[in-house]
Design a protein around this nucleic acid. Structure first.
Length: 939
RNA sequence: GGGCGACUAGCUCAGUGGUUAGAGCGCUCCCCUCACACGGGAGAGGUCCAAGGUUCAAGUCCUUGGUCGCCCA
């Protein structure tokens, strides 16, 4: 072992080295975790699926936050001895990936249509092969302890099979159907998208009031619209049936301007009488509400646009124009005809494509849908029954409300990159024929449905063409927790790891993904629920038949200081790898963990990363202190081998004779308490609490007090003392590193290896997480140490006020009534004198004379230091007066409360007693301060 | 239109009805003491957005309002 160790923690080389080693050694294979030796199914398990990042992307800070939280829990469970699986993988991200590749092609002036479907798909695969590994590399570098031997991709053959199986089952059950309905259409992506993929943005717009001449009169009706170009497709105007203004017109007609089509005036309760003139144009082919009205009144649907957002032949003279150009032309034409009554400035909500931000066009088209109500019922039940615990709780309500109001899901996409729908259409009779089973075959390295129908069962026709649509990406994502474990086959992994223990995702994909996984997981695992969604008791019908995860934690999002989501295109994105280069991965992880309070979004702060980096350096240097002193271990007569032996550490704390015993008992008592707190915090996703607890323990307790306290013991001439001290300090630091490992894996791995470890020890990640050991809890030591700390701080406080040179040792006087503090001080005189930089501490039971000195008092003791003649009397009087005022106010409020019979009778006895005791102490303190003030003012 | 969240020290944020409301950073003073100046020691700094209410007790629970942000329609 080399004993050179840099003075400051330098993360770059260390992190890269360990990231590579962990990956190369397959350290995080599930098989490396859990009880050694026993049968595979023994013992507690922990399994979690990585929310698969888009294959085309790169890690952003939101991933980093997500992965840090998952990794903390995964490492923690692994160290607790659970058989632990974190299954990673990527999502083919249909529309997103196709968009990216299309944009690249556009740079060469190529459209995908120029290439044709097969060639385009080939290009996407090629591009995926080139850039698809980026995320994986980054995740490895950032320390995610995934089992990479089980990595999956949503478009790989095994997962396509799961998709086929699902589609075919739901199709046969009638839960997937095809039909002609109004959908959200993106003219840029040229595909239908689901309701969830439409984002609503507030935009400044205009409301145009148009005049529609009433047929056979010189009058006209005025309709208001934000989308005048759709008027070409109007097939009616509507008024409210009870609107007195228009009663006489119902049943008459208007002449649609520009196109000169005679259309009826109808009555429908959908019309809002208060809006505009109370007359609305009805365009069944371009508005979802008008579509419904059109159905009710049997109106024709006139689609005036093309798939790419241009006007079609039905638009007459406007055919061929882009929809926004057409709008301008139509408005100017109406104006010149005197049919534009007025224009109003408004802000309104515009639906845009989540992916490309183009304005979405409501459009009638033939698509595939999934019936969601029957699937949502069991999902609601498992959430209501607590079979799936949702954290934070308010997200549970949001989820339930969404499930309550669920609408059918448009699952088909007119894309080329994705899972192709396994339905064939008979060229002859248009019958739809599904693949006969879910088997897949590999063609050119990629999966295709293998069981292709060859003959139409209805007409016998032999010419069948596969549906050209692919499925929404979220269709395959919805199967992720079980498709990745081998479903629909009954695999060992499925038996071992399903249902997964937990899902951690951002709340922004609660509906997109989490909810759909619950619905699909429940539905595809027949047997556990009957049709009413009730839990069936008795033996489980199969391991796969269950919820996809037992707990669901929705983590916060990282936002810019303006509250917007981080966005690369807006330039507000933060590259975590760059931050890693700058500050170290562990520092970044610590910072994220420390800010990850459930339910609150995170705004990055440079200050907090710097603080985290300082913490990493502090840990490094605490270990460095032991490291550079290793020779002294040997000179104390201890071998490193013995120190490294697990048995040695297991027996800590070793009793230390004489003065030094207290601190050892205390630090292990703290360790037990802290381990308990960290367990509790992690169990409840309180990552920030876990982070803060270990920080406080390591820096405050271990470094500031324990190490400083025991330093001289390590070089003690008494061999027994030195031996025990070394054994204890190693055991304590080793435990602290294990405690820190889930948050800061690289640093702790490096230090763990640099310190003596048993032969053959592979990694701190496979070591044990510290337990809250009951036998370490030592309330008396906690209390004693707190008392001594109070005395040391009081002495330092006086020194600072007297501006005593920090190296100069001075005498002090100490007074207390009872023997308890006297004994305690006597037993710990050396460390107290040293830490307070005192030459002597004279102990008495008498009152101390404050003249010419500075004093600090608590209810239990007085401490006095006289030094030089530099006492600033005025300042001391000022300080005393302030303290007295605060105390008096406090005592007064306590007295008031204690005098209140309501309080003393209704509040718990414990609270009343505690208040009483505190008040007595305060009164004592107050008396001391008042006495002193009097003397000072009198002198 | 409906819902959710935030508002606490100069800044970024914790705070689970019950001591004198905490942390990190920043600030002031002292110290480069042999693990660490990414450090050590000491200190200053808060009418907890406002107004009502519940309670023996409210930063915490309820109601209303304000400001900001997010989501859904």
């Amino acid at each position: 072992m080399s004993r050179e160790i840099p003075k400051a923690y330098e993360p770059q080389e260390i992190e890269e080295r360990w990231a590579k080693a962990w990956f190369d050694e397959k350290l995080f294979r599930a098989e490396n975790s859990g009880p050694p030796g026993g049968p595979a199914s023994d013992g507690p398990r922990f399994s979690i699926a990585l929310p698969p990042p888009n294959v085309t992307g790169s890690i952003h800070i939101g991933h980093m936050l997500e992965h840090t939280q998952i990794d903390m829990l995964v490492r923690w469970h692994r160290m607790k001895g659970n058989r632990t699986l974190w299954l990673p993988g990527m999502d083919h991200a249909g529309i997103a990936t196709q968009y990216v590749v299309e944009k690249k092609l556009a740079e060469e002036g190529i459209r995908r249509q120029d290439l044709g479907r097969e060639e385009f798909e080939r290009r996407v695969w090629k591009w995926k092969a080139e850039s698809g590994g980026v995320i994986k590399e980054q995740m490895i570098r950032l320390g995610a302890s995934c089992d990479w031997t089980r990595e999956r991709f949503t478009l790989e053959p095994r997962l396509y099979r799961a998709v086929l199986e699902t589609f075919l089952r739901l199709y046969r059950e009638g839960l997937i159907y095809r039909g002609r309905y109004m959908v959200n259409w993106c003219p840029r992506c040229q595909t239908a998208i689901s309701d969830l993929e439409v984002v609503h943005v507030e935009r400044a717009g205009k409301l145009w009031h148009l005049r529609y001449p009433i047929a056979g009169t010189k009058d006209f009706l005025v309709v208001a619209t934000t989308r005048p170009e759709t008027m070409l497709g109007d097939t009616a105007v509507a008024v409210h049936p009870d609107d007195e203004r228009y009663q006489h017109l119902i049943g008459k007609t208007v002449m649609l301007p520009l196109i000169n089509r005679e259309i009826p005036i109808i009555a429908d309760t959908y019309v809002d009488r208060e809006f505009g003139t109370g007359v609305v144009k009805i365009t069944p082919a371009h508005d979802p509400n008008d579509f419904e009205v059109g159905k009710r009144h049997d109106l024709p649907e006139i689609d005036v646009m093309t798939v790419d957002g241009h006007m079609n032949d039905a638009a007459g003279q406007y055919a061929g124009l882009d929809r926004f150009q057409a709008r301008k032309r139509i408005l100017s034409d109406l104006e010149s005809l005197g049919l534009l009554e007025r224009v109003e400035d408004i802000t309104h909500s515009v639906g845009v494509c989540d992916r490309c931000k183009s304005e979405v066009e409501p459009r009638i088209s033939t698509q595939w849908f999934m019936k969601m109500k029957p699937l949502a019922e069991p999902a609601k039940r498992v959430v209501l029954d607590g079979l799936i615990e949702v954290v934070p709780d308010n997200q549970r309500t949001i989820l339930l409300q969404w499930l309550e109001n669920i609408r059918d899901w448009c699952i088909s996409r007119q894309l080329w990159w994705g899972h192709r729908i396994p339905i064939w259409h008979c060229d002859n009779c248009k019958e739809m024929v599904p693949a006969s089973d879910s088997r897949v075959e590999i063609v050119e390295g990629h999966a295709r449905a293998a069981s292709v129908p060859t003959k139409c069962p209805k007409c016998g026709g032999a010419k069948l063409t596969q549906d050209t649509d692919v499925l929404d990406t979220w269709f395959s994502s919805a199967l992720w927790p079980f498709s990745t474990l081998g479903w629909p086959d009954d695999t060992d992994d499925l038996r071992m790891f399903y249902p997964t223990s937990l899902l951690i995702s951002g709340y922004d994909i609660l509906f997109f993904w989490d909810a759909r996984m619950i619905m699909m997981g429940l539905h595809l695992s027949a047997g556990r629920f009957d049709a009413s969604g009730r839990t069936i008791s008795g033996p489980e019908a199969g391991l796969a038949s269950s919820i996809p995860f037992r707990r669901l934690y929705l983590h916060s999002l990282v936002r810019t200081s303006e509250g917007a989501k981080m966005s690369k295109t807006k330039g507000t994105g933060v590259d975590p790898l760059q931050l890693t280069q700058q500050y170290g991965t562990d520092a970044l992880r610590y910072m994220l963990a420390s800010m990850a309070a459930p339910g609150t979004d995170i705004v990055l702060s440079e200050d907090r990363i710097l603080g985290a980096r300082a913490f990493a350096n502090k840990i490094w240097n605490a270990a460095r202190f032991l490291f550079v002193n290793l020779e002294k271990v040997e000179s104390a007569g201890l071998t490193l081998e013995e120190l490294a032996a697990p048995e040695t550490r297991a027996k800590a704390p070793y009793p230390v004779k004489g003065e030094g015993a207290l601190a050892h008992r205390w630090i292990f008592s703290r360790l037990a308490a802290v381990a308990g707190q960290v367990h509790d915090a992690l169990e409840h996703f309180r990552f920030h609490e876990a982070a803060q607890t270990v920080y406080q323990f390591f820096w405050g307790d271990l470094c500031d007090w324990y190490i400083e306290w025991v330093k001289p013991q390590l070089t003690s001439s008494e061999r027994e003392v030195a031996l025990a001290a070394w054994r204890n300090i190693f055991a304590a630091l080793d435990a602290a590193l294990r405690l820190l490992h889930p948050i800061m894996p690289f640093l702790t791995e490096e230090l763990w290896h640099r310190l003596p470890q048993p032969a053959g020890a592979r990694s701190i990640a496979l070591d044990k997480f510290p337990e809250a050991r009951k036998e370490w809890i030592d309330v008396a030591s906690d209390d004693a140490m707190a008392r001594l700390q109070e005395i040391v701080v009081a002495a330092r406080n006086i020194r600072a006020e007297l501006k005593v040179d920090s190296k100069r040792k001075v005498d002090a006087d100490f007074s207390t009534r009872g023997p308890m503090l006297i004994n305690l001080l006597t037993e710990n005189m050396e460390p107290v004198l040293r830490l307070a930089t005192l030459s002597a501490l004279r102990i008495s039971k008498e009152h101390l004379d404050p003249t010419g000195a500075v004093m600090r008092s608590t209810a239990a003791f007085d401490l006095r230091i006289a030094y030089g003649d530099t006492i600033d009397k005025a300042a001391e009087i000022e300080r005393l007066k302030k303290a007295i005022a605060a105390l008096e106010q406090d005592i007064e409020s306590k007295q008031k409360r204690l005098a209140d019979v309501n309080f003393t009778t209704k509040a718990p006895e414990k609270v009343v007693d505690a208040l009483r005791a505190t008040m007595v102490e305060r009164q004592l303190e107050l008396k001391k301060l008042k006495d002193r003030l009097e003397r000072l003012e009198g002198s």
